[in-house]
C-alpha cells in the first residue's frame, strides 16, 4: 500500500553498550542505577524496581537501554488487565516488565532487579487458597468464580 517498507530503517548497533555514544543519554544513568541495584541484590537480596516511565528519555534512549541489557533466556506473559510481558535480560537478575493494557498500549515499563519478578510469584492470598482449590479439583468440582491463574 505504501512505500514505507522501502525506506531504509536505520537501527543503532545492538551488540554492545558502547555503541554510538549519545549526546543525551539518560539510558546511561539508568544503567548505572541498575548496577548499584545489582550490587544490593547480591549483597543483601534487596530487590529494586525502576519505573522507566518516570525517566526523561529522549527518542532512542529506551532502545539503547534495552539493546545494552540484551535478551536473556526467560520470557513470560501474564494475562491480567491486558498482557504483561516479562523478559529476562542478558544480565542475570535484571528483568524488563512491560505492563500493557487491553489495547496493547503501555501502562508502564519497569526494570526489576530481583531473582524473580514479583508479578510472576503467586500472590499470598491466592496461595492460601491453593490447597482448597486443588482439593476441589480432585473432587471434580472446580470452584466457580475464581480468578483465573495465569497459564
Amino acid at each position: 500500500m505504501s512505500g514505507s517498507d522501502q525506506i531504509p530503517v536505520s537501527i543503532e548497533s545492538s551488540a554492545s553498550c558502547s555503541g554510538k555514544p549519545r549526546d543525551y543519554g539518560n539510558a546511561r544513568a539508568v544503567l548505572g542505577q541498575i548496577r548499584h541495584a545489582l550490587e544490593r541484590l547480591i549483597a543483601s537480596g534487596e530487590e529494586t524496581r525502576i519505573d522507566l516511565n518516570a525517566m526523561p528519555f529522549g527518542p532512542g534512549d529506551l532502545e539503547h537501554l534495552t539493546n545494552c541489557l540484551g535478551t536473556g533466556e526467560v520470557q513470560a506473559s501474564v494475562e491480567a488487565l491486558g498482557p504483561t510481558r516479562i523478559q529476562e535480560t542478558a544480565i542475570p537478575g535484571v528483568w524488563l516488565v512491560d505492563y500493557l493494557n487491553a489495547e496493547n498500549q503501555r501502562l508502564t515499563l519497569h526494570i526489576e532487579i530481583a531473582n524473580v519478578p514479583q508479578i510472576l510469584c503467586p500472590q499470598p492470598q491466592d496461595l492460601a487458597l491453593a490447597i482448597d482449590r486443588l482439593d476441589a479439583r480432585l473432587d471434580g468440582t472446580p470452584a466457580p468464580n475464581t480468578p483465573p491463574l495465569s497459564s
Binding site: R49, I50, D51, N53, A54, V78, A80, L81, T84, Y99, L107, T108, H110, Q118, I119, Q123, Q125, D126, P147, P148, L149, S150
Partner: peptide
Amino acid sequence: RDIGLSRRGFLKFCAATASMMALPPS
C-alpha cells in the same frame, strides 16, 4: 475483582497506578 480481575491483575493495576501518580514502584 467482580469484573474478573485476578490478584496479579490487581498488583499490575497498582503498579500502573503508582506509575501514573508518579510514585515510586515500591
